[in-house]
Amino acid sequence: MMWKYGMLFLLLFASCQYERTIQPAFYYWKTQYQRREREQATLNKLDTKQLFVRIMDVDLDETGLKAIPVSPIVFKNKLPDSIDVVPVVYIVNNVLKQQSEQALTMLANRILSFTEAKVKQGGKNKFTELQIDCDWTQTTRETYFSLLKKIKALTSHKTIILSATLRLHQIKNRHSSGIPPVDKVLLMCYNMGNLRKYGTQNSILDEKEMAIYLKDFLPHYPLPVDIALPLFSWSVVFRDQQYVGISKHLDSQSLTDTNLFYRQGNTSLYHLKKELPKAGLRVNDVIRREEVNIETLFVASDFLSRYLPRKDLKVVFYHLDAALLNRFSDEQLQEIIDRF
């Protein structure tokens, strides 16, 4: 009898160990912020408290020497009172290749002052987290980390959490990629395959790729890790089996038009029968339709839940857009959250 009670205690203790508090959030990745009823309804239904708002890109000017803000967000409406904003600044990797320490100091100050001004335009007086998004490389790592340290120094007295985005390879190869000098990281669980490679693979989300890069490495990452999951789909164009780009003109419905396309078996590849000059497409171009469905997101959530050591984390959906939300019910999104 004592043995049974002991086993029951161990089971209860183990279950308590893995209980998590999940905070759902969304990215807002557009150049204009405008409140829309469908989007606000989902925020309310999921009890979302944070919106990760892209403030601007940072890229080089025409001279290739000066870092400047590109396509900064314009607020058509104020952010909801119930939502805390997490400003996100995307830094193009090329910006980091030729920057002196003095230039980095100036850049850090400009990023912070520009971000603070934009947040106020959005109707918020403050923010408690600032996120920097950059796909840094080994050649730009030291410069990028130096910039992060300078931003951290500027925000430390304001008790602002500094976070950075991570790609899958930066988890697996952390010894060569380095650990960014931030408070926490957000792992982008999408765009994980080879987009430019011809074939039937899905480059947005692939469980096999996640296993390769995360299974043996995610539990041991030395910083707190939040998770971003994709809601988007896209159409990738190939010409003579060479990558051309992503078409904004073709959705899943348009590819079902048998007058324009024929499908290669039961695959994700569609061959164009006629010229589509407005879309910049030619006869025999091949379009690979890549989609993320709810079953794929369930699988990804279950996988990540097994290897995440944290008790409390954010699950951030990319991104808040009515057209994307129409593909998923609020109940399905809630189930993704619950699976963590």
Rank of each mutant, 00 (worst) to 15 (best):
T48G: 10
L65Q: 08
V88L: 06
K78W: 06
E116N: 13
I83T: 12
K158G: 08
Y90I: 06
R110M: 05
M56H: 06
G122M: 09
I91E: 03
Q34E: 12
S100M: 02
I132G: 00
F26S: 13
T128L: 12
T128N: 15
I68G: 11
Q50G: 02
Q170Y: 01
Q121P: 00
D81Y: 15
T155R: 05
L96W: 04
F26D: 12
Y90E: 08
Q131I: 13
T63E: 13
F52A: 05
Q99C: 02
V119D: 14
Q121T: 07
V53P: 07
R35N: 14
L112I: 15
E129W: 07
V70E: 11
H169P: 02
S100G: 00
I91R: 03
N109E: 15
D61P: 15
V53H: 09
T31E: 05
T48D: 10
D135V: 06
V74C: 09
H157W: 03
N93C: 03
F26W: 13
Y28M: 01
A67Y: 05
I68P: 03
F114G: 07
T143K: 09
N109F: 13
T159F: 11
L96Y: 00
D133S: 07
I91Q: 02
F114T: 15
V58Y: 01
K76F: 10
G123M: 09
